[in-house]
Amino acid sequence: MSGAGAEKSLTGEAFMHMIKLKVNGHVQELGVKSHQTLLEVLRGPLELTGVKEGCGLGECGACTVLMDGKPVNSCLVLALEADGSEILTIEGLAQVGKLHYVQKAFVKEGAIQCGFCTPGMVMATVGLLQENPNSSQEEIKEGLRGNLCRCTGYVKIIKAVEAAVEMMREGEQT
């Protein structure tokens, strides 16, 4: 999002509240309405469409991003609540074209079909493994329970997360 302009508001209507976010390493200052969700702001003015909306009600996990390092359903967070926080979306995960090891594992293990749940699933996994780098299969299943996938039957996603745990153990750096 470099060049999007930290100084100027991206929307400038009345009864807007100015908030400041650090999104994928870049400071963004923008006006939001009080009922606007973080998801709406990310997909709308910030055009981070890698963040997906599956239900808008916190039931599917497709919109998962990291807020101050913790996975959240961005559809359940008001943009105002996110003021001052640091947000990492799928767009900010790979560094200069180098995939994060969780992304590598998802590709290699065939954990992706339609791919719509993938960004949220990957971010939830990154959050999970930051919290518990040695997650067991049961912990993976529990930790990702809020993320729905209709294509894969979860089997290869679990394998991918296990592979990511292994890669991390072997010292793979992002």
């Binding site: 890698g50 799928i90 995939l99 791919g115 960004p119």
Partner: peptide
């Protein structure tokens, strides 16, 4: 792996 895996895992794929 599917040939579109990278675009999907990075959020680049446009739906």
């Amino acid at each position: 792996p599917k040939i579109d895996s990278i675009s999907k895992v990075t959020g680049e794929a446009q739906y």
